[in-house]
């Protein structure tokens, strides 16, 4: 099977290049990662990340024939030859198919991806109704492989400003969590013009997600929630007594 793989070793190469491989596969080689390991047997200078080899850890995400995906769950029989492999776009290349995901995780961390609950911790876990638990389906499954965020042009052009689909999916995951108490802070955190609203719903993220999640829908729901929350606080403001009313009342008292 023929492969064309992006190669770049900053210690040796002046610029990246594509290297062709023609590899004989065994019957047991079913997935792209199997073929890559077969290539690595031939050329151990090829660098890539891998770990669980079953689509759970998200380490081996890469650009496969122009579309981001996980090598370990991509069937070789589904790929057109030569299989063109590149590192995920939009992030600095460390070496070959390995990218520096620092920016990706900074954006992820910026949404405070953990439960905020100031109540006294119960003896066992914080309980949820089955309905509230069901709201987390389609959100908690994200494995942070980065396939969605690095296929998003808004992230390519504004990596330090736009949170990106993975980060926003995680933001929504905690926004809808019935046990979380930081809804206002979470929505306020996404108010800066480029953090949330840079998403223009082109849905590359949905197209590439190896877990079949829908970050675009999560982003749309955050936008809806922000409108509802803003309306709610406007209503509360209008009901609150003005400074003048308070002054008049204090005079009467």
């Amino acid at each position: 099977m023929k492969f064309s793989i992006y190669r770049y070793n900053p210690d040796v190469d002046k610029k990246p290049y594509m290297q062709d491989y023609d590899v004989v596969l065994e019957d047991s080689d079913q997935m792209l990662l199997d073929a890559l390991l077969r290539i690595k047997d031939l050329d151990d200078s090829l660098s890539l990340r891998k770990s669980c080899r079953e689509g759970v850890c998200g380490s081996d995400s890469m650009n496969i024939n122009g579309k981001n995906g996980l090598a370990c769950i991509t069937k070789l029989s589904d790929l057109e030859e030569p299989v063109v492999l590149r590192p995920m776009p939009g992030l600095p290349v460390i070496r070959d198919l390995i990218v520096d995901m620092t920016q990706f995780f900074e954006n992820y961390n910026s949404v405070n991806p953990y439960l905020v609950n100031n109540d006294e911790p119960p003896e066992t876990e914080r309980l949820q109704s089955p309905e509230d638990r069901a709201k987390l389906d389609g959100l908690y499954e994200c494995i942070l492989c980065g396939a969605c965020t690095t296929s998003c042009p808004s992230f390519w052009w504004n990596p330090d400003k736009f949170v990106g689909p993975a980060g926003l999916l995680q933001a929504y995951r905690f926004i809808v969590d019935s046990r979380d108490q930081a809804l206002d802070d979470r929505l306020e955190n996404l108010e800066a013009p480029d953090r949330l609203y840079r998403c223009h719903n082109i849905m590359n993220c949905v197209d590439v997600c190896p877990k079949k999640l829908n970050p675009s829908l999560a982003i749309a729901r955050i936008k809806d929630l922000k409108i509802k929350e803003a309306n709610h606080s406007k209503t509360l403001e209008s009901k609150a007594p003005t400074k003048r009313q308070i002054a008049i009342k204090s005079l009467h008292d």
């Binding site: 996404l190 108010e191 800066a192 013009p193 480029d194 953090r195 949330l196 609203y197 936008k223 922000k226 409108i227 803003a230 309306n231 406007k234």
Partner: peptide
Amino acid sequence: SLLTKRYPGM
């Protein structure tokens, strides 16, 4: 009423 500077992104 939401088109204010308080909500620049929105």
